[in-house]
């Protein structure tokens, strides 16, 4: 990502119903005030590429992105879904998992910005028992899953009719870009 052409973008995601007895309610239960604010009121060069700040009743997501990605369907669909995970309480299943780590959200979002094109299909977003997040695609004969469960480690699994690969990456997302480029622009069915 070229910092010289990057644009700052900030969205504030506020919760409407703090009690949220059912966390499967989807993004409709969030008030999405995502806005593109230009120019940004401070030095963009000092921004990280992705910053997730959790406050009492809201989450602020700040991105440094290229202009062509701003209106990408996958970005505008995926960010609210990732933010939603931060309201899931600790112990949300019988394995008693930790609350979702905001750093895992930052990690996976930065990775998606590095490997997806503007017309890439949106991933499915799933919370994980390890307090992280998994994004996945199951379409066009491809299964691709990427899990971030702390700020430094990412695991992936890929399979199609010819190949099956899995492993761990720490820095270089190039191998994942090979996989995501094989996903066509058709999107997954919406979650029911």
């Amino acid at each position: 990502m070229n910092v010289d052409v990057a644009l700052p973008l900030e969205g504030t995601f506020a919760i409407q119903n703090k009690s949220m007895p059912e966390f499967a309610g989807g993004i409709s239960s969030l008030h999405n005030s995502w806005t593109h604010t230009f120019p940004y009121p401070f030095d963009t060069m000092s921004l990280p590429e992705v910053r997730v700040s959790v406050r009492e009743n809201s989450v602020v997501v700040a991105l440094k992105i290229t202009p062509e990605i701003i209106y990408a369907k996958w970005l505008n669909q995926t960010v609210p879904e990732l933010v939603r995970l931060l309201w899931i309480p600790k112990g949300w299943n019988s394995d008693n998992p930790e609350q979702i780590n905001p750093r895992a959200i930052e990690k996976i979002l930065a990775l998606l910005l590095a490997i997806l094109e503007p017309d890439s299909p949106p991933p499915i977003v799933v919370p994980t028992t390890r307090g992280g997040v998994q994004v996945e695609w199951h379409q066009n004969g491809i299964d691709l899953e990427i899990e971030s469960f702390n700020s430094s480690k990412v695991e992936y699994y890929f399979s199609d009719s010819k190949d099956e690969k899995e492993g761990t990456i720490e820095d270089d997302p190039a191998i994942l870009k090979q996989f995501t480029s094989r996903l066509k622009t058709t999107s997954c069915s919406p979650r029911v």
Partner: peptide, 9 residues
Amino acid sequence: QLQVVPDDN
């Protein structure tokens, strides 16, 4: 419920 996914394949 949060881990049920649609599989287009």
